[in-house]
């Protein structure tokens, strides 16, 4: 077989594989009428194969989470020490270990963690340490739902992976609160958001054009200047939404940037390996008619 037929055969294989993979990628559920808007792009620095997180943005995003969101939304799967992992908001390149990072120790100390007295067994609250999880605002899921009109605020630990196009979705949602469209029957305790999933057809008069989006139990949580950033960035709603979306995207998968960087090395190795092996293959098969 000549090089041309080799390559043709390989191309056919790759096309077929790509077709199958493309099918898998495209196999999203069908969209019903009146579907939510496609999320707006937050222009995030971490998108793409070479993207990285902006540490300043992550620090601002953490502040927004801690001061605004954490009063209702838990991040049960996050520990304070994770904030000091390489690529994280408070990583310092001289730290002995993430748990010894000075910023993380200070941040953890600000949190009050429920524990028991080591001698009497009585429940008490103590200062947090880096090894502790983020404290949950509610003692249990039932209390969370009861305090929020029956709908518990979802945990945000992996929220960027739990929604399609997560970071952009979170950014869009937080900036997507708009005036209630004409004729939309509001349900009590609900707010209208352009980017929320749902079907508003039952809540519009017969025959009227159904607006995109759906009802969300959370009222608009952000207002200008709500948080004072330490780096003096202007805390507009747009800025805070971007920052907290970036922070949540990092928290959902703290190792993603390291993984992409390792991936680059692996791909280079694999291409070289493929080249060497192909040459070996040709050498072995040289002159053999097949």
């Amino acid at each position: 077989m000549t090089l041309q037929t080799n390559i043709r055969a390989m191309k056919k294989t790759l096309v077929l594989i790509a077709a199958v993979a493309g099918l898998g990628l495209a196999a999203q559920p069908a969209l019903a009428a009146g579907e939510k808007h496609t999320p707006r792009s937050g222009g995030f620095s971490f998108e793409g194969p070479f993207g990285t997180f902006d540490q300043g943005q992550l620090q601002r995003g953490y502040k927004v989470y801690r001061e605004v969101c954490a009063s209702c939304h838990s991040m049960d799967l996050m520990h304070f020490r994770t904030l000091a992992e390489p690529g994280g908001p408070f990583y310092e390149s001289g730290q002995a270990s993430p748990a010894e990072n000075r910023f993380v120790k200070a941040l953890a100390k600000e949190a009050q963690i429920g524990d028991i007295d080591t001698e009497t067994g009585e429940p008490l609250m103590r200062d947090g340490t880096p090894a502790d999880r983020f404290p949950n605002p509610y003692p249990n899921p039932t209390a969370a739902a009861a305090a929020n009109g029956g709908a518990a605020p979802p945990d945000l630990s992996v929220m960027a992976k739990a929604r399609h196009d997560g970071a952009n979705y979170i950014y869009s949602l937080l900036t997507g609160y708009a005036a209630v469209p004409q004729g939309l029957q509001m349900r009590p305790g609900q707010n209208y958001n352009k980017y929320m999933s749902g079907d508003l057809t039952p809540f519009m008069p017969e025959g009227a054009e159904v607006p995109p989006g759906g009802f969300i139990a959370m009222a608009n949580p952000l207002s200008t200047g709500q948080v004072t950033y330490d780096d003096e960035t202007v805390a507009s709603v747009d800025q805070m939404a971007k920052d907290v979306a970036a922070y949540i995207a990092w928290a959902s998968d703290p190792k993603q940037v390291q993984r992409k960087q390792a991936g680059l090395g692996v791909m280079i190795f694999l291409f070289l390996f493929a080249g060497i092996t192909y040459l070996s293959y040709r050498r072995i098969w040289k002159g053999v008619a097949h």
Binding site: I17, G263, V266, A274, T277, Y281, W285
Partner: peptide, 20 residues
């Protein structure tokens, strides 16, 4: 060796998914 070469190409596709 032919199977090995094909496996490397397959790993390239695999790695694209896993890492990126």
């Amino acid at each position: 060796v032919k199977d090995g070469f094909a496996i490397i190409l397959f790993l390239i596709l695999f790695a694209t998914f896993v890492f990126f």
